[in-house]
């Protein structure tokens, strides 16, 4: 089953820590966003394999935008 990982904030992608294909456990940090000078870690909502990463560093992101997809 595919699970979308969505942004909780409007901001920018600061760092992408994992790549497509990586095995993740629930709570693992996939990437770090930056908004209003705050670092916002994006955690895996479920355990599985990272199917894809939809953004790259410095991309602007909107609230609810899909950042990554996890296959569980």
């Amino acid at each position: 089953m595919l699970h979308d990982v969505e942004s909780e904030v409007t901001g920018a992608v600061w760092k992408v820590l994992l790549q497509a294909g990586a095995v993740v456990s629930e709570g693992d940090v996939i990437m770090i966003l930056e908004s209003m000078k705050m670092e916002i870690p994006v955690e895996a909502p479920v355990s599985g394999t990272l199917h894809s990463i939809a953004v790259q560093p410095e991309d602007q992101v909107e609230e609810d935008q899909i950042l990554a997809v996890i296959q569980s």
Partner: peptide
């Protein structure tokens, strides 16, 4: 701050 009181997430 422009941020949620419960989650502390910034709000635009």
């Amino acid at each position: 701050y422009a941020e949620d009181s419960d989650t502390l997430m910034p709000s635009t």
